[in-house]
Design a protein around this nucleic acid. Structure first.
Lengths: 235, 235
DNA sequence: AGTCACTTGATTGTCGACAATAAAGTTTGG
DNA sequence: CCAAACTTTATTGTCGACAATCAAGTGACT
């Protein structure tokens, strides 16, 4: 259940269920949905890239029906947008939208902190410390010259753990949706900057400290500041 | 562009575009999506009600393809949930989930207030006052014995106006999604209680006052309190 | 009677084909 | 040479049919 911040294929805030990655007998439409969304998030399919139903159907060797369903779901998630009868393209996040998303994250993740603080027991504290530890390990690996590819150690995100401890499934959903879209813009930028990761780690550590002391207000404040800082650090 | 809080068919927070209600040459899947979602929100299709693709297809006189697409979108919006190969049913909001949604509204709508306050000019102040006025008119109508049906005066929601002034399309989207689901549970309860509407109006007025004075922090605080109160007032 | 395997039934997943639509390209008239 | 109407072409919207899948009902066996 270690979800990773680092790998584009995975969702950041997933609910607690076990996600069988290579679900063999999953419907094609589901497979396509996963495939396309990770391709979009990872940037493999560039923002603004146009795609057509027949094209995708042929590329993935299925008929148009499952393609359409996957596309409808992506559209509802606002990862793609259709212009009637003339293809559809991956939505581009304007700088303004990215700022909006960061603002929303501030609000929602502070809320998550407030909720989480009152729910932190021994087990939860351990989870938080684990997350920090794996983040440390990841930074060591990167600083040691390790590349940011699939073989990198898994980083279970502090954000993800907090959201789960907050135990608000609706909040989890929203964060999942919002962050998912951010990821696409942020993943590649972050991954190339060990110094930023380290600074981020320090802020995470502060938040975790506040949480283990069950100081929700402080944790929320630190989280808000952390997200704002993360936004400002993006050059 | 007067969006109403009162009528189940409409979405509460809609973005600025003009919504041609009876879009004649819209795809069937779109029509079905609108139809089903308003039916679900208005309670016409009860929570927990199960429905099948062939059933819906026959009922609305179309094939299964558009039905499936509409259902996939509803599923992505989490208005319905599927249990594999055994029908699908309208999701029921547990009391816990309703509380979660209210909490999220607190966070997001306070944010909307903070943003809106710094953007309030003459035009925006007028919009806010209009919203209050139409709310007053609606209450007068209800108190005067008017029934809560389609012929009731339109209430343009203060919440909706604020969200639009906040000018954050992502925020608008999230509120739309979250509130949409709340509506279903809240609409019929609220509509039957003029006293609650009146109390709500007073709180709205306070928020608007703070906004027109461009006091974002106060407006945010009042909004948070208002939403919490609304939650607590639900018996 | 209880339990297990099988059959049945209904529903979902997927496919290929056809109609509808709108954009791009072509022709024709001024 | 330009513009407007027409044709072409690619794409989307919709349909009916078939295969896959699972739940429930049926019957045989202990």
């Amino acid at each position: 259940m270690t979800q990773d911040w680092g790998h584009p294929v995975e969702r950041v805030y997933t609910s607690g269920e076990i996600q069988t990655v290579g679900d063999e007998n999953a419907p094609q439409s589901e497979r396509l949905y996963e495939l396309l969304s990770s391709a979009i998030i990872s940037g493999e399919i560039a923002p603004g890239a146009s795609m057509t139903e027949p094209g995708l159907a042929q590329r993935y060797g299925v008929s148009r029906a499952p393609v359409r369903e996957a596309l409808r779901r992506l559209e509802e998630r606002q990862l793609i947008e259709r212009s009637a009868y003339r293809g559809m393209r991956v939505v581009e996040l304007s700088p303004g939208m990215v700022e909006e998303l960061y603002e929303i994250r501030e609000a929602l993740e502070s809320l998550a902190c407030r909720r989480a603080a009152s729910r932190v027991g021994g087990a939860e504290a351990a989870l938080l410390k684990d997350a920090l530890a794996s983040e440390r390990a990841y930074i060591r690996y990167r600083v040691g010259g390790g590349e940011a590819n699939a073989s990198a150690p898994t980083v279970s995100s502090v954000h993800s753990v907090i959201a789960r401890i907050a135990d608000n499934s609706e909040l989890l959903n929203l964060l999942d949706g919002a962050i998912w879209r951010l990821l696409r813009a942020e993943y590649w930028r972050r991954i190339k900057r060990p110094d930023e990761l380290r600074q981020s780690y320090l802020e995470h550590a502060g938040i975790v400290r506040a949480l283990t002391q069950r100081d929700g207000e402080l944790a929320a404040l630190l989280m808000q500041r952390h997200i704002r800082m993360t936004f400002q650090r993006r050059r």
